[in-house]
């Protein structure tokens, strides 16, 4: 079925008091079917009759993590890159010392600061 035909069919089906059975059949023939995976029934029974409380909580946790990951990851990477560029421009190098912010401090100064001499 062509896209335009399907669009017209959908809009027409909503104009009637009840969606005609023929529409449901055409929709199915066009590949519009919603089903769960083959082991759905087994998974439900396992969650009811098996030890599953932890898995439910885990599932919600991972779904939340998945939702937020692609938002936070990109922003985080951009922030890290900006920080590294600013260190490189300010310190002229990307050594551990410069990342820690102690790149231009002499060892004697640190000892003096810590010991008071």
């Amino acid at each position: 079925m062509k896209t335009d035909e399907l669009k017209g069919l959908i809009l027409k089906a909503l104009e009637t008091e009840q969606t005609p059975d023929s529409f449901m059949q055409e929709l199915e023939e066009a590949g519009v079917t919603y089903t769960f995976s083959n082991d759905f029934s087994g998974a439900v029974l396992n969650r009811i009759f098996g030890e599953s409380t932890v898995r439910i909580a885990e599932s919600e946790f991972f779904s939340n993590m998945r939702l937020v990951f692609n938002r936070v990851a990109l922003t985080g990477i951009a922030a890290i890159i900006l920080l590294l560029i600013s260190i490189l421009l300010g310190q002229g190098t990307l050594s551990i010392d410069s990342i820690l912010g102690i790149g231009d401090i002499e060892t004697d100064s640190i000892i003096s600061l810590m010991t008071g001499y």
């Binding site: 079925m1 896209t3 399907l6 066009a30 590949g31 519009v32």
Partner: peptide, 9 residues
């Protein structure tokens, strides 16, 4: 890959 129709719906 889903059918185009399913994708549209």
């Amino acid at each position: 890959k889903r059918s185009d129709a399913l994708e549209l719906v």
